[in-house]
Amino acid sequence: MSSLFTVATTEFKRMFFSPLAWSILAILQFVLALMFLVLVQDFITLIQPQTAGIENPPGVTDTIVSALFLWAGIIMLAVMPILTMRSIAEERSNGTFSLLRSAPISMTEIVLGKFFGLMMFVFIMIGLVSLMPLSLSLGTSLDWGKFLAAILGLSLLLASFAAAGIFISSLTNQPIIAAISSFGLLLVLVVLYISGKSETTGSELFVYLSHFGHFLPFLEGIFQSGDLAYYLLFICGFLILTIRKLDNERL
């Protein structure tokens, strides 16, 4: 257990030794802040006057929080592969992976350590993004249940990105290929959702298979154990595949 923790914290700290983590956080925050500004502006000038007379109108949480978190998820589609390519592919190409492999530590601990290290970064990122809607609570009241569901949904979505990315990273020793392939895989799952929802080729199965299909209910504040189970299976599945792949590599 302690080795797992060591790998995770070192993985996390190492991201901040280079400018990588800082620049990713800064750029994400900048882009999402612009987004947030647009959303707040729209809400004040468009949505609020229009819905003034309606009973039980959509509030700030519905219009701003879910849109912001959706965008955060979409942007991370491109960012996560850059983070996961470092975790195994880059270590291999730098020759540092043999340090872990010859250390008295199991492959499971290495892979889980890498995953939790990435998750620590993901939580910081979600924390920073959440500060923006949180600032609204100074002036208005937020729907805390929906807000927390959105945070949970985004965490699960990004965890699934991380697990898939780590798996792809374990398949190659070229970081760029790992990044592009992970991006491709994540994008295919989004396309599955889009095609599943389309009027001509619509398919429940495609929507079900896509990770975005299970993310959107969280944004509406709906917590279904089926969605949670989907993400847990997705994450465990890819992590187990990674462990098996790396163990087999020795053979």
């Binding site: 030794f17 540092t96 530590i105």
Partner: peptide
């Protein structure tokens, strides 16, 4: 074990790196 290519993380200082190795061991 020292492999052919030294397994060092270039973005860490010598002490940080050795501390990590020591904990791993």
């Amino acid at each position: 074990y020292l492999p052919e290519q030294p397994p060092v993380y270039k973005d860490m200082t010598v002490t940080e790196y050795l501390r990590y190795c020591a904990i791993l061991r």
